Amino acid sequence: MSTAVNTGRKAAARRRTKTTTQAAAAQYKIAIKYILCGALLLLGIVFMAAYSTNLQQQNNTLAARNDVLQAEIDSLKEQINDATSIEKVETIATKKYGMVQPDESNYITIRDEKKQGSSLADTIKKEAYN
């Protein structure tokens, strides 16, 4: 009987060893899965950081371009204000086109001459050349 008991004990020991080996293999697989998931997570973080850095660089470039364009807009607005100021218009009108400010000596009085048969244009010509 001792042989049968020894054989049974050996078989039970082999089963325990096999079960222990299978458990160790299952734990090894789980550990590998966790390591792979961690590695993928870290790799994703690295890629997201690189992408974020790239977006930040593009944002900085666009902000600098926006500042340049805003400075150009401000310069153009100032040029428009200078060109359309009353003083500038008066200077150009008097120097370039010979215009003068109206006073008592440089206006035309139109009399009612319809009774005499002359038109408005004739009246203006007559007054302008007299």
Rank of each mutant, 00 (worst) to 15 (best):
K10R: 12
A11K: 15
A11P: 00
A13T: 07
R14H: 08
R16T: 02
Q22G: 04
A24Y: 06
A24T: 08
A26E: 04
A26C: 01
Q27D: 10
Y28H: 08
I30Y: 04
I30G: 04
A31L: 08
A31I: 01
I32Q: 14
I32C: 07
K33A: 11
K33R: 10
Y34N: 12
I35F: 07
L36M: 11
C37I: 10
L43H: 05
V46M: 11
M48T: 11
A50F: 11
Y51A: 13
S52R: 02
S52F: 01
T53C: 08
Q56K: 13
Q56L: 14
N59Y: 09
N59S: 09
N60G: 03
T61V: 08
L62C: 00
L62A: 04
A63Q: 12
R65D: 11
N66H: 03
N66S: 06
N66M: 09
D67K: 09
D67P: 00
D67L: 12
D67I: 06
V68N: 05
V68H: 03
V68C: 02
L69G: 03
Q70D: 04
Q70M: 04
E72S: 12
E72F: 03
E72N: 10
I73C: 04
Q79H: 05
I80M: 09
I80P: 00
A83H: 07
T84E: 14
